[in-house]
Design a protein around this nucleic acid. Structure first.
Lengths: 144, 144
DNA sequence: TTGCGTGCAAAGGTTTTGCATGGCA
DNA sequence: TGCCATGCAAAACCTTTGCACGCAA
């Protein structure tokens, strides 16, 4: 339908580089800007938002919010195939994202449909919790 | 620790009434205000936010966001026990919330921990999708 | 009478929009 | 040259905060 030409620009390249070096963690628009500033690249926050929006539409990154976040979070899903067909887990401490790329995903879909008559849509379906590392750290910290 | 007295007020009663008649769906602060206006009850939006916050702290309602929502959504979980121990499913069309109150919840927890080393925290863990009703409607609508 | 609850106005923060300019193809 | 991309400023939007007053207990 709306076949739009995409020009290659310095800003876009810089943002893509950020994404590809941060595939394991989620980030906010402000994180991207901070990275740009640290590397001496001049990119406006509006431009960052516009590029992140476009990437979300193209399915190259995920966009979501939680009750704890006051801003949107994004994550590159490019290295993983079929991200719209499995759900994701996010660590609330470090922001790391895990992909449920395994046989259990099918079982989950099946259970939801058969027992709850619910058709899951994996986009925006995120389970919150703690990854291995952060769980250990949090546990240690909270001990007397 | 902070044992705070709770006064019973007209606003609080009105909000609680809204909650108890809307246990099946999520709502925003603006939904509550709209309901109040329709019923001729004068309640300030600030007051609504403050009461919803308090109810969230008490564990009587859930609070969450999704990438699609531009505002926070809340839902009464009072009729369901142990809502912090199971995850929820939300219909993206009608906002309805379903509770995974079944044996499968344990299997899910176990799988996440054993295969992904992920410790799920059910608060804020919401699966998005379509409920039975909306799935049928959407399917029909999209047919030629 | 005490101090929690409320309304009002204003501020805070993130995200979006309009418009003129810049730059890729 | 045509049109997408960008920067800047301002707006939009939801949510929170400060303060004075009202009201439950």
């Amino acid at each position: 339908m709306s076949e739009q030409k995409n020009y290659r620009t310095k800003s876009k390249d810089a943002i893509m580089e950020y994404l590809q070096t941060h595939t394991e963690h989620s980030f906010s628009a402000y994180d991207v800007r901070e990275y740009m500033q640290e590397n001496g690249i001049q990119v406006n926050l509006t431009t960052i938002y516009r590029n992140l929006d476009k990437l979300t539409e193209n399915g190259e990154i995920m966009k979501y919010k939680t009750a704890e976040d006051e801003c949107c979070r994004y994550q590159c899903v490019k290295p993983h195939a079929h991200c719209s067909e499995h759900i994701h887990m996010q660590c609330r401490e470090c922001g790391k994202i895990l992909h449920m790329e395994c046989h259990f995903m099918e079982e989950l879909k099946k259970h939801l449909f058969e027992h709850h008559k619910f058709t899951i849509e994996c986009t925006n379906s995120v389970l919150m919790g703690l990854c291995e590392n952060c769980k250990n750290n949090v546990t240690v910290q909270h001990q007397p």
